[in-house]
Computed example of a mutant assay.
Amino acid sequence: MELESAAKAFKELGHPSRLAIFKHLVKAGHQGAPVGELQQALEIPNSTLSHHVSALVASGLVKQHRDGRTLYCIPQFEALRGLIDFLMNECCASDQISTN
Rank of each mutant, 00 (worst) to 15 (best):
N100K: 11
L83P: 08
V62N: 07
Q39L: 07
L25M: 01
L61C: 03
I74C: 09
E43Q: 08
P75G: 06
A93N: 09
L25V: 03
I97W: 01
K23L: 11
E37C: 01
T48V: 11
A9W: 00
C91K: 05
L19W: 04
S50Y: 05
V35M: 10
P45F: 04
R69S: 15
G29V: 05
M88A: 15
T99D: 12
R66D: 12
T48H: 07
R66T: 15
C92H: 06
S54F: 08
S59L: 04
Q96W: 10
G60S: 05
L71P: 09
A79C: 07
T70W: 12
E37A: 13
L80M: 09
D67K: 14
R69I: 14
G32M: 04
D95N: 13
S5N: 13
S47D: 10
L38S: 05
L38D: 03
E90W: 04
E2N: 13
N89T: 14
K27S: 09
E90V: 10
Q39M: 07
H30N: 03
L49Y: 05
F22R: 01
Q76M: 07
G14P: 01
T70N: 15
P45V: 05
H24V: 05
K63N: 14
L42P: 03
S50R: 10
K63E: 15
H65W: 09
E78K: 06
N89A: 14
R69F: 14
L80G: 06
L42I: 03
G29L: 00
E4D: 14
E4L: 14
V26F: 00
L71K: 12
G36H: 01
K27L: 09
L3A: 13
S17M: 07
F10T: 04
K63T: 15
A7H: 04
V53H: 02
N89F: 10
S98E: 13
A58E: 14
L13C: 02
A58W: 03
C91F: 03
K23Q: 12
E43T: 05
F22W: 02
N89M: 11
A33V: 03
L80E: 04
H65E: 15
C73Q: 13
Y72W: 15
K8H: 12
N89C: 10
K8W: 07
T99F: 13
K63F: 11
G14L: 02
R81W: 08
H65M: 14
G36L: 04
L25Y: 00
L80P: 00
A9F: 00
L38R: 00
G32H: 01
L49G: 06
L80F: 07
K8N: 12
E4I: 12
Q64E: 15
E37W: 00
V35T: 10
E90R: 11
L13E: 02
A58D: 14
H30S: 07
S50W: 02
T70G: 10
S50N: 08
G68I: 08
K63D: 15
V57R: 09
G60H: 02
R66A: 14
D85F: 11
L56T: 07
E90M: 08
A20G: 08
E78W: 00
S17I: 11
E78N: 11
E43G: 00
L87A: 14
Q76P: 00
Y72K: 13
V53C: 08
E4Q: 13
